[in-house]
Amino acid sequence: MIVGRRRSIGKLVVTPFLIALLLISVFALVFVRSQIVKLEYRLGELEKKKTLCLRERKVLFAEKTSQLSFARLEASSQSQDGFVLPDRLKVVQIGKHTRSMPSHASFKEKQLAEP
């Protein structure tokens, strides 16, 4: 009699619990999948933004490179800022020179040091 009751209580509790667990699992899977898709959408949007930013960066970089061309620097520094380019004839010799080039030009060493 007691055993039969226990079985019926077990049935009453476990079965709905398992069904609920099944449903929750199914919904959890669906939820996770929908979140992944949502993230993919967000990533897609961010990639678009990234592309736009990179495009803008390329334009700015090109502008910077144009502005830093020697011709522009030379023109603007001489006309606006009063700078002059290096001229050996205006150099005063004041001490021992650090070696920037091979003392004798030859095939053995690189002839032109980095300025």
Binding site: L85, D87, R88, K90, Q93, H97, M101
Partner: peptide, 20 residues
């Protein structure tokens, strides 16, 4: 000047370099 090639008519060690 740009390549920093020293003058050959300056006696002694070639040297750097200050602006007048």
């Amino acid at each position: 000047s740009y390549l920093n090639v020293p003058r050959e008519d300056v006696p002694g060690k070639q040297a750097l370099l200050a602006w007048r």
